[in-house]
């Protein structure tokens, strides 16, 4: 029964998302609030969120494999599929954000290694390769040396690092402190673990209690990092306040109380909550004007230092989410049916 509702929900959001995507592809940028003063908007936030989940959950699973926790190792396949689906959704969202979508292939051929985005293409190809290898290995149930898991951890942490470096490079709108990469790292793993927990719960895997313990640890670490970040920056946006109160404190409390029924949804809640904090860090950092009175020198659409995602941007975000979920669902279903056929 749960699956029926789940499928119905996904279908609805897919269609709604598609409408938004269609309108955007036909009418174009006028539907968006993208602007030059705040160059990166909702879709870039969605992108770093997806890539965070993808690398984060793989990191945590590899970590468990290393410490030989059998209970969690059987999540490797799920994690690989989750990583693949969220990574592809992430790349798709960055493609849609490009001014010239049809030239995305240039990201992979004339790569400029002094540019963080240049590394992106490179690292993500390696990471995808690792994920595919993991899938194949877990499929044929071959036991694997820890060296492989270590490689997995290294690659996934590099991916997160690259992603955080995207926003930390001076001298442009450089981000306020070195706390930023750490914050990025923790939130990525947090969101990965959260979503993993949710899926594990959905698929009736019995190892959710262990994951929730890890999640709790991560939530607390994240809280600490966020507070340090706020103190060092001196200001706090209300979006951050809402995030801390809802997607950070409440899950901590729920996990401590260990109410079983809510457990799976807590994971989802944390996973989605991380989007808010990443969005907040991304946008507030770009609102800093290069000079006093810069905004008042010229008033035209796209030059004001303020940004609110437009309706179409939300629609396309819904599409991206439903795309990754569908990608996961289809991939997972086909893998499990294939493996059961083989077993027979």
């Amino acid at each position: 029964m749960k699956q029926k509702i789940f499928l119905f929900l996904i279908a609805i959001s897919f269609i709604v998302g598609l409408i938004g995507l269609y309108r955007y592809l036909t009418i174009g940028h006028s539907l968006l609030n993208l602007n030059s003063a705040v160059p990166w908007g909702l879709w870039v936030a969605v992108y770093i969120w997806f890539v965070g989940i993808s690398a984060g959950n793989y990191f945590i699973v590899m970590f468990w494999n290393i410490i030989k926790n059998k209970k969690l190792s059987n999540l490797t396949t799920i994690s690989a599929i989750l990583s693949l689906s969220t990574l592809s959704a992430g790349l798709l969202s960055i493609l849609l954000d490009l001014g010239h979508i049809e030239r995305f292939y240039k990201l992979f051929i004339s790569v400029n290694f002094s540019s963080v985005m240049g590394w992106m293409g490179f690292f993500y190809s390696i990471f995808t390769f690792i994920l595919l290898v993991t899938l194949v290995l877990s499929f044929i149930k071959k036991d694997v040396t820890t060296k492989f898991y270590v490689a997995g951890i290294v690659i996934s942490s590099l991916v997160i690092l690259v992603e955080s470096m995207l926003f930390a490079r001076p001298p442009g709108k450089h981000w306020h402190s070195i706390i930023f990469p750490i914050h990025f790292f923790v939130t990525s793993i947090l969101s990965g673990t959260g979503i993993l927990m949710f899926i594990a719960g959905l698929l009736k895997k019995d190892n959710t209690s262990l994951i929730s313990k890890t999640l709790l640890v991560l939530l607390i670490v994240n809280l600490v990092v966020e507070i340090i970040d706020i103190v060092s920056m001196g200001t706090i946006s209300n979006l951050k306040i809402i995030y801390l109160l809802t997607a950070n404190l409440i899950p901590i409390i729920l996990l401590i109380l260990n109410i079983h029924t809510l457990k799976t949804f807590v994971g989802l809640f944390c996973g989605i909550g991380v989007l808010a904090t990443k969005y907040d860090s991304l946008i507030t950092a770009q609102l800093k004007q290069p000079f006093k009175g810069f905004e008042n020198a010229f008033f035209e659409p796209g030059l004001a230092f303020s940004y609110i995602p437009s309706f179409t941007e939300w629609l396309v975000t819904i599409f991206l989410i439903s795309f990754s979920v569908t990608f996961f669902y289809v991939f997972y279903k086909s893998i499990t049916s294939l493996s059961s056929k083989l077993v027979r």
């Binding site: 602007n35 160059p39 010239h100 030239r103 990201l107 709108k173 290069p290």
Partner: peptide, 18 residues
Amino acid sequence: CIGCRACLNACPYGARTS
């Protein structure tokens, strides 16, 4: 140029627009 707007964020003088 693919229009990724990375250079807009990289310029400390706000000299680039899209």
